[in-house]
Lab assay of single mutants.
Amino acid sequence: KKKIKIYIENENGEKKTIEIEVEGDIDEIAKELAKKYNVKIVKIEP
């Protein structure tokens, strides 16, 4: 498992940072999160 930080922006332009532990393809997981929460991924840090 890797701990990563995902910087997101919602439709109101509010920026947030999510810190999660992931296993597998980080890009795939980030895309799923973006779709699920309707946010834009700004940056992903390993």
Rank of each mutant, 00 (worst) to 15 (best):
I8W: 14
T17A: 06
I6F: 13
V22H: 07
E23N: 08
K16E: 09
I8C: 13
I26C: 05
L33I: 11
E14N: 07
I41L: 04
D27V: 09
K1P: 10
K43F: 11
K5T: 12
E9D: 02
N12S: 08
I20A: 05
K15G: 10
A30Y: 06
N12C: 14
K3W: 15
E14Q: 10
E32T: 06
E28Y: 07
D27A: 10
N12D: 11
V42E: 04
A30G: 03
K5Y: 07
Y7R: 04
E21L: 09
I8G: 02
E19P: 00
K2Y: 14
E28T: 11
E28K: 11
D25L: 04
I26V: 11
G13V: 00
K35E: 08
I26K: 01
K15H: 13
E21S: 08
E21M: 10
G13N: 03
K31H: 07
I8Y: 15
K31P: 01
K36I: 08
K43N: 06
E23S: 10
N10E: 11
E32K: 09
I44M: 06
E14G: 07
E14C: 13
I26G: 04
I26L: 10
D27Y: 13
V42Y: 01
K5N: 05
I44K: 01
D27Q: 07
I44H: 02
T17N: 03
K5E: 02
N38I: 02
E23D: 12
A34W: 02
K36Y: 10
E19K: 05
V39Y: 09
Y7I: 09
E9N: 02
E23L: 09
I44A: 02
V39N: 04
E9V: 09
K2G: 09
A34D: 03
D27C: 15
E11A: 13
V22G: 07
V22W: 15
I20V: 11
I4H: 07
I26A: 06
T17K: 05
E23C: 14
V42T: 06
I29E: 03
N12E: 09
K3F: 12
K1E: 03
V22C: 10
E23T: 12
K1A: 10
N10R: 11
G13A: 03
K15P: 08
K40N: 09
I18C: 11
I41V: 06
K35R: 12
E45T: 06
I4P: 00
D27I: 10
D25P: 07
D27H: 11
I29F: 15
D25N: 11
I4V: 14
D25A: 04
E19H: 09
K43E: 05
A34G: 06
G24N: 03
K36P: 00
V42W: 01
E11D: 10
I6W: 01
I26P: 10
Y37N: 14
K40S: 10
K1V: 12
V42C: 10
V22Y: 13
V42G: 01
G13W: 02
G24S: 04
Y7T: 15
E23A: 08
E11H: 11
T17H: 08
D27W: 14
V22N: 05
K3C: 12
K3L: 11
K15W: 08
I6E: 00
V42D: 03
I29P: 00
K5Q: 06
K35H: 05
K35L: 08
E21Q: 06
K43M: 10
A30S: 05
K40E: 08
V22M: 11
V39A: 15
V39E: 05
E32S: 10
N10L: 15
Y7K: 03
I18M: 11
Y37D: 14
G24K: 03
I41E: 02
K16W: 15
K2E: 06
K16G: 15
K35C: 07
K5I: 10
K1T: 11
E9L: 07
T17Q: 05
K3A: 09
I20K: 01
V39K: 02
E28V: 09
K40T: 14
K43S: 09
Y37A: 15
G24R: 03
E45F: 08
G24M: 03
I4D: 00
I26F: 10
D27K: 05
G24Q: 02
E19L: 08
K16L: 15
V39R: 00
I44Q: 01
E19C: 12
E19N: 05
N38K: 10
E14L: 11
E28D: 09
I41G: 01
P46D: 12
K16M: 15
G24I: 02
K36C: 15
K36S: 04
I4Y: 15
G13Q: 05
I44L: 04
Y37M: 15
I26H: 04
E32V: 07
N12H: 13
E14M: 11
Y7A: 02
K2W: 14
E32D: 08
D25I: 04
I29Y: 14
N10K: 13
E19W: 07
N12R: 13
I26S: 03
G13P: 00
E23K: 06
K35Y: 05
I44S: 02
E45V: 12
K3S: 08
K2N: 09
E11V: 12
K40D: 05
E28F: 07
I4R: 02
I26E: 04
E14T: 08
G24D: 03
K3Y: 12
I6N: 00
E14D: 11
G24T: 03
G24V: 02
I6M: 06
Y7W: 13
E11L: 12
P46F: 15
K5S: 09
D27R: 11
E9Q: 07
V39D: 07
E32G: 06
E21P: 02
K43D: 05
Y37W: 12
Y37C: 15
I6P: 00
I29V: 10
G24Y: 03
N10A: 13
I6R: 00
I20W: 06
E9F: 03
K3E: 02
N38T: 03
E19D: 07
Y7N: 02
I41H: 01
I41F: 03
K16S: 15
E9P: 01
I44T: 02
K5A: 05
I6G: 00
I18T: 01
D27T: 09
I26N: 02
I4E: 00
K31E: 08
K16V: 08
N10I: 08
A34T: 06
I8H: 01
V22A: 12
E19R: 03
I8A: 05
T17P: 02
E9G: 01
I4N: 01
K43Q: 07
K35Q: 08
Y37V: 13
N38C: 13
G24W: 03
V39C: 12
D25S: 09
N38L: 05
I26D: 03
K1M: 12
E45M: 09
